[in-house]
Amino acid sequence: MFRSAPLAPRSAQLVPGIALCLAIGAVSLALGTIAPVVGSALPAIAIGVAVAAIRRPGARTLPGIAFSAKWLLQAAVVLLGAQLSLQDVITVGAESLPVMLSTLTVCLLAAWGLGRAMRIDGRLRTLIGVGTGICGASAIAAVAPVIAATSGEIAYAVSTIFVFNIAAAVAFPLLGHALGLDAHTFGLLAGTAINDTSSVVAAATTFGAGALGFAVVVKLVRTLMIVPISVGLALRQPQGGASSLLRQPWRILTLVPWFIVGFVVMVLAHSAGLISAGAHLVMASAGGLLIAAALAGIGLSTDLGAIRQAGWRPLALGAALSLLVTATALGVLALTGRLG
């Protein structure tokens, strides 16, 4: 009883920022209803970026904004599981493996080779490589302690990845429509070629109905690659290095994000018929608002100064890797008969 008391002040600190994100999210949903072609995802990000550019969020709203950008999006992903069957997840996940493994291999090899050629520090190019190849900031956060990355390297990598998150959310729906992709194929492309879950959700939502479920399933399968990559990097560290994965193998389980487990639980509940039609509607509406609020939080978190500080080399490496991953995904989709 006494230990839980401090939770109240901490929770109260989150309210202003969450309220701001929810307000922007609600406005974005309204704009998406008025102009369905635009959708709600891009307005949420754009409004957030504009507000942050005019006036950086202060200490009063920052905790809630950070909470919204991470936890509200993950909660929305969990709710999305209630709209998919186990058969859908297995089929789409298996179908994505050739594209996903190809893009990841190309990305990691290019990060090593191009990064060395551009004289980028080994840890920084590793962070940018896994961030681009797997799942953005989540992969960077998981791998950073394994390779003993510094806080500065982490900040540079996250800032670099953030630039291409925003670019992908805008460019990929345009690319998908230009290529005449259907919702399923666009989901495969977005889930394998866009680095962060938030941008996958934004791009798929903007593209149109039906793409979001496919894209998120593919993205979650890709996110699980954090585990073998982190273990592989740990094995490369010198004995007595910073990584504790070898000394405490049970920590491997902590690399699996909680929202993937929650997503699977919701898929199983839906497949077993445990979720009523009314609950489906409520979850779909709540998920839409949470996505918009989370993307608003990501927009509000934009730090143009940090992006400038990262310098041109990390940004150039991030751009090259993003283009290579996209080209590889399109190439594999073409070879498997998905394009054209």
Results as ranks from 00 to 15, higher is better:
285 S>W: 14
15 V>K: 03
216 V>T: 02
98 P>A: 06
138 S>A: 11
249 P>R: 14
54 I>W: 05
28 S>H: 07
194 I>S: 03
120 I>G: 01
266 M>P: 06
177 H>I: 11
286 A>R: 13
236 R>P: 00
21 C>Q: 10
326 T>I: 12
309 Q>K: 14
193 A>D: 09
160 T>M: 01
173 P>D: 09
302 T>Q: 10
145 P>H: 09
267 V>Q: 00
340 G>V: 00
146 V>F: 01
134 I>C: 12
241 G>H: 13
196 D>G: 04
35 A>C: 14
231 V>F: 15
44 A>E: 09
32 G>T: 06
244 S>F: 10
28 S>V: 12
330 L>E: 00
124 L>I: 04
241 G>S: 15
40 S>W: 06
230 S>N: 10
246 L>F: 15
10 R>S: 01
167 A>Q: 14
4 S>G: 09
40 S>V: 05
16 P>E: 01
65 I>M: 08
255 L>N: 04
12 A>L: 11
7 L>P: 01
323 L>S: 08
184 H>I: 02
259 F>S: 06
82 A>K: 02
35 A>G: 07
324 L>K: 13
94 A>E: 12
218 V>A: 01
317 L>P: 01
19 A>V: 07
185 T>Y: 09
312 W>C: 12
296 A>E: 11
336 T>Y: 00
14 L>E: 03
150 T>G: 15
142 A>D: 11
12 A>P: 02
339 L>M: 00
55 R>T: 09
149 A>I: 11
1 M>I: 11
263 F>W: 03
308 R>P: 08
98 P>M: 02
246 L>P: 15
308 R>C: 10
231 V>K: 11
162 F>R: 00
306 A>Y: 03
156 Y>C: 13
111 A>I: 11
108 L>A: 12
78 V>C: 06
254 T>E: 12
176 G>C: 00
171 A>L: 14
307 I>C: 02
98 P>S: 06
56 R>N: 00
332 V>T: 08
219 K>G: 11
207 F>Y: 09
45 I>P: 06
95 E>G: 12
225 M>I: 04
281 L>P: 03
122 G>R: 02
122 G>S: 04
2 F>I: 11
217 V>A: 09
122 G>M: 00
233 L>I: 15
129 G>E: 13
268 L>R: 04
62 L>N: 00
67 F>W: 14
164 F>C: 05
192 T>A: 10
275 I>N: 04
228 P>D: 06
143 V>P: 06
119 R>M: 08
320 A>P: 08
225 M>G: 01
209 A>C: 01
104 L>H: 05
248 Q>G: 07
217 V>E: 10
250 W>H: 14
12 A>W: 03
312 W>K: 12
30 A>P: 08
167 A>Y: 14
42 L>I: 15
265 V>I: 15
199 S>H: 06
53 A>K: 03
328 T>C: 13
321 L>S: 03
283 M>N: 10
171 A>Y: 04
63 P>I: 05
43 P>K: 12
309 Q>D: 11
193 A>M: 10
112 W>G: 03
239 Q>T: 15
201 V>W: 04
132 T>P: 05
49 V>P: 02
304 L>D: 02
130 V>S: 14
290 L>M: 15
315 L>D: 07
32 G>M: 03
268 L>Q: 07
274 L>Y: 15
102 S>N: 09
170 V>H: 10
217 V>C: 11
198 S>V: 12
95 E>T: 14
207 F>V: 00
